[in-house]
């Protein structure tokens, strides 16, 4: 808590020079949920190690997290932008399915990758733009606008084809089949794409004016507008980014499963939202980190891996993720309440 320079008979419990802890809290209090996510991830690893008697913490398990959940990571990155503005994007699961189908269909019709992949990204961006315009210019609630996007995406996926379309293009298959080994660590081009997406997003959010405007809108949209920030186009851009990420995730998932399938990604938007929230981003916007969302995806992936290893019922997955989500929302509320109480 900083003191004013003017001498005034100000009282308060915290007089004098602020301690290191106070300074840290006043600067980085918003990071606490993300730290909590890291702690949970470590606990999960230790738990996995104990359950599986020393067969869990090894490079392959961790590498597989990135290989298997690259698509979810990319979705979570896009979702982070939208949630930071205080919005939500329910469309990403079905947009991912649609763009996957679109790409598979274009490739099956003999078009080159150089056309199919940009078409996938543009398809995702277009649906994002549609949602953004509904939210910004028509004042539709993000929940409803993106629900419309969800139905639209799913419908379009089925229009492309009712059945799965196999992908045989070598360039797309290469994305998943190539194993780049560094010692015992393994990574695929899909994993690298996901990591690059995270890096770009972190750069944009923390080192560009556009990124800071995203945070400002989440803090107070009205204030951001009165400060002369470009609120309208930034909000729309957040949905376009989320849509484009969904398009990219469509590519990654297609590479992963060697096919486009119109029923892919049902409910995946909720997994992405869960990962973002577990990673410490506030659902009301303005606070959170894209690296936190990455941790959130790893937490999600680790739980799923442990359940697979244990051979337990998949339903437990839902219960555990649900409980974690609840826990994190409560933790966030407590932190926000504390921050407000400190004033």
């Amino acid at each position: 808590m900083a003191a004013m320079t003017t001498a005034r008979p100000k009282s308060g419990p915290s007089e004098g020079r602020p301690s290191v802890v106070q300074t840290f809290l006043s600067r980085h209090g918003g990071m606490m949920p993300t730290f909590a996510a890291v702690a949970i991830l470590i606990l999960l690893f230790i738990g996995g190690e104990i359950f599986l008697r020393g067969d869990f913490i090894k490079p392959l398990t961790i590498s597989n997290l990135l290989i298997n959940y690259a698509y979810l990571l990319v979705l979570a990155v896009g979702m982070t932008f939208v949630i930071l503005t205080g919005g939500i994007d329910l469309s990403v699961g079905s947009v991912m399915a649609f763009t996957g189908m679109l790409g598979a269909k274009l490739l099956a019709d003999g078009l080159p990758v150089g056309i199919a992949v940009p078409a996938m990204l543009l398809g995702g961006a277009a649906i994002g733009l549609f949602i953004g315009i509904l939210v910004q210019y028509f004042g539709v609630q993000p929940f409803i606008a993106s629900l419309a996007g969800l139905f639209l995406g799913r419908g379009l996926a089925f229009i492309v084809s009712l059945n799965s379309i196999k992908v045989e293009d070598p360039a797309v298959l290469w994305l998943q089949s190539t194993r780049i080994k560094v010692g015992d660590w393994v990574i695929t081009p899909t994993g690298i794409i996901a990591l690059i997406t995270v890096a770009i997003a972190a750069f944009v959010l923390h080192l560009t004016r556009f990124g800071r405007t995203i945070y400002a809108i989440g803090g107070s949209e009205q204030s951001a507008r009165l400060m002369g920030l470009k609120v309208g186009r930034t909000k729309i851009a957040a949905y376009v980014i989320s849509g484009t990420c969904a398009g990219l995730a469509g590519l990654l998932l297609t590479a992963y499963s060697n096919a486009g399938y119109p029923r892919n990604g049902i409910g995946t938007e909720l997994d992405a939202i869960a990962a973002v929230v577990i990673g410490g981003t506030l659902l009301t916007g303005g606070r959170g980190y894209v690296l936190g969302s990455m941790i959130g995806v790893f937490v999600y992936g680790t739980i799923k891996t442990i359940i697979n290893f244990m051979g337990a019922e998949q339903a437990w997955m839902q219960i555990i993720v649900g409980s974690l989500l609840l826990l994190f929302i409560v933790v966030q509320r407590a932190i926000v309440a504390r921050a407000e109480g400190r004033r």
Partner: peptide, 22 residues
Amino acid sequence: CANLSVGENVMLGHEKRRSTGI
């Protein structure tokens, strides 16, 4: 924006930039 730092609130939209971002 109460969620951002004091300095950022003063400078939002006018942050000092260099080639590697803000």
